[in-house]
């Protein structure tokens, strides 16, 4: 059997619909996850107390369990436990938001803690107010340092979103497998989604590599 582009001709709009679903879910999870990540990050930075311990556990837990397990758990257990009705897509957003919150919290924390001690010493020795220290001295360089990590995580998130096909969210991979099952043109559809993912992710990876290369150069200078 050979690659047959005609197989794609009729059904490619469904793949693009899948792409839009992927992007929409990723977008929502970033928004909700970002809110969660700030709370978790504050919890972990606060250094002691129940909030700290719970934040540390949540971060470790959701960074360590496989994303598929998280997705299945949210999809099949959460509605039962709370007597809710949740569509697959909502479950997917909930699961990925937890995934984002835990990972971004860790990126934020690491970025903030990598602030040069000397900068803090200087700021303190001038008697700079704490809000100014955060706003002008800690956060701007920290966020800039974190940017490659954020983008790198975004590539992970895009890849993880493909797992939502396992609970029937109609994103790209789901569309491809359904179309594959219908037409037996697995080769064409699966290759097409692979190409779409590559086009989506590769530029981000290139940026990460470029940014990190620049960073190491700056350090070794």
């Amino acid at each position: 059997m050979t690659f047959d582009l005609n197989a794609l001709q009729a059904d490619y709009p469904l793949l693009f619909e899948g792409l839009l679903v992927t992007l929409r879910i990723v977008g929502y999870s970033i928004v909700f996850g970002a809110i969660g990540s700030v709370v978790l990050c504050m919890g972990k930075l606060s250094g002691k107390g129940p909030g700290y311990r719970v934040a540390v556990f949540i971060i470790d837990f959701f960074r360590t369990i496989p994303e598929v397990v998280l997705i299945f758990w949210v999809y099949s257990c959460l509605p039962l436990l709370f007597g809710l009705r949740m569509s697959a897509e909502v479950s997917g957003v909930v699961a990925l938001s937890l995934f984002v919150a835990a990972n971004v919290a860790e990126i934020l924390r690491a970025g903030i803690l990598s602030t040069d001690r000397g900068q803090l010493e200087a700021a303190f020795s001038l008697g700079t107010p704490v809000t100014t220290i955060w706003r002008r001295i800690v956060l701007p360089p920290a966020l800039r340092r974190m940017l490659p990590n954020f983008v790198n995580f975004l590539t992970e998130l895009l890849k993880a979103s493909s797992l939502l096909s396992t609970i029937g969210v109609a994103e790209m991979v789901y569309q491809a497998t359904v179309l594959g099952n219908e037409t037996f043109a697995y080769l064409e559809f699966l290759t097409a989604v692979a190409v779409l993912y590559f086009l989506l992710i590769f530029p981000l990876s290139l940026y990460v590599r470029y940014a990190e290369g620049r960073h190491t150069k700056r350090i070794s200078r």
Partner: peptide, 23 residues
């Protein structure tokens, strides 16, 4: 390296199981 790092493992798994045999 770039091909495998920039596509989801799920797609690779499906591709290898369903598409590769066709090739």
């Amino acid at each position: 390296v770039e091909l495998f790092r920039n596509t989801p493992i799920l797609v690779q798994v499906l591709w290898i199981h369903f598409a590769l045999p066709l090739v």
